[in-house]
């Protein structure tokens, strides 16, 4: 099992954890240009958390979306939110007091199963900082429902719900 990446934040209530981009690279299999979350915080493993994605003009998708009008594709905002979900999910394995099977935890990250009623309320452009939040909901079999949101300067940029697989089976 990978050693605990971060110490719990000292707050009242359930233990929360923060993860740097270096920590996140040990938790997710994604790499450039598809690593879409820079930092995670207030993570309650297996339950909820927040994250940050700073949007740079150097993002490769701006080259084509669009050449004279740089806006972040909505699906990439969804990807950022989904990667926060994966961090929350992997955190449950990393921070569990129960000994986990040896191996790379990033290999446990599953897939998107459904994108449900996601609304995009605001254009996201270079220089924006997406503040991501995710709350994991009910699970059934290898599927889990999650509600997600992304804000820029306190204004909602995207929100909705996703279904993710809790592993890589099928």
């Amino acid at each position: 099992m990978t050693a605990m990446l971060s110490k719990p934040d000292t707050k009242t209530g359930p233990a929360t954890f923060s993860y740097s981009s270096d920590d996140i690279k040990k938790m997710l299999p994604h790499r450039w240009p598809m690593l879409m979350i820079d930092r995670a915080y207030d993570v309650i493993p297996g339950e909820s958390g927040k994250g940050v994605k700073s949007v740079s003009v150097n993002e490769p998708f701006f080259a084509g979306h669009y050449p004279d009008h740089s806006i972040m594709p909505g699906v990439m905002i969804v990807e950022s939110m989904a990667q926060l979900v994966a961090v929350i999910y992997v955190a449950e394995m990393l921070e569990s007091p129960v000994e986990q099977p040896a191996g790379d935890v990033s290999e446990q990250v599953g897939y998107l199963g459904a994108i449900k009623s996601v609304k995009f309320n605001k254009l996201v452009v270079p220089g924006d900082q997406l503040v991501l939040s995710a709350q994991l909901g009910p699970r059934l079999g290898g599927l889990r429902s999650v509600t997600v949101k992304a804000t820029v300067d306190g204004q909602t940029a995207a929100s909705g719900s996703l279904i993710v697989t809790t592993g890589r089976a099928g």
């Binding site: 599927l143 889990r144 429902s145 279904i163």
Partner: peptide
């Protein structure tokens, strides 16, 4: 399908 069944789980909850 299984995705729909999770939707029903959420709805019932």
């Amino acid at each position: 399908d299984s995705l729909d069944s999770l939707e029903i789980v959420v709805m019932v909850n």
